[in-house]
């Protein structure tokens, strides 16, 4: 459990770098980062450099790092929504292809919410989001046996601000290599 958490934190951090570089406006991450290392993400230029370096050195195929850097481990949702945007579907299509290329890998799909909901409702909503991702991967040919889900509701934010930019990053599902 403790070891898992450590790995997860690392992967989330790495993922944040990628998100900052590819998808999210830099102003958002500056606002929402937890201080320390993640403050790097406020400058997207330097972030890209970091990502490129990591990519060319240590990535093991089929690893979480591989998923994060070369595929994208997460998709984002609208407020109180669990439908998959075109962008989310594109990410999951890459995940499906990656799972075919790495047939021994199994994934835990973590559903998360922003803080603007009650605790119980968010647990249910996180489960809906994780299941929406799982179901879409299954329609793309991934065996359901390789996919499990968990909801963290609003308990595991990655962006720590109290604003829409932070909430948008927290309404997410994250695919984690078991």
């Amino acid at each position: 459990m403790r070891l898992n958490l450590g790995l997860k934190t690392l992967s989330i951090f790495t993922a944040l770098l990628l998100v900052a570089a590819c998808e999210t406006a830099p102003t958002e991450t500056g606002d929402s980062s937890g201080g320390g290392a993640t403050t790097q993400t406020s400058g997207s230029g330097s972030t890209t450099t970091v990502v490129t370096e990591t990519k060319t050195t240590t990535v093991q195929p089929g690893s979480q790092e591989d998923l994060v850097l070369n595929v994208g481990d997460r998709v984002f949702f609208g407020f109180d929504k669990y439908d998959l945007s075109d962008e989310a579907q594109a990410t999951l299509q890459r995940q499906a292809a990656w799972l075919k290329a790495n047939p021994t890998v199994t994934l835990l799909i973590e559903g998360n919410c922003d803080e603007r909901g009650t605790r119980e409702y968010n647990l249910a909503l996180g489960e809906r989001r994780a299941t929406a991702v799982k179901n879409y991967l299954v329609t793309l040919g991934v065996s359901a046996d390789r996919l499990s889900t968990i909801s963290y509701g609003k308990e595991r934010p990655v962006a720590l601000g109290h604003n829409e930019a932070a909430w948008a990053q927290n309404r997410r599902s994250v695919s984690v290599v078991n």
């Binding site: 669990y82 249910a124 489960e127 809906r128 179901n135």
Partner: peptide
């Protein structure tokens, strides 16, 4: 209590 199955609570 609630139970979630196939994403439905």
């Amino acid at each position: 209590m609630s139970m979630a199955q196939d994403g439905n609570s």
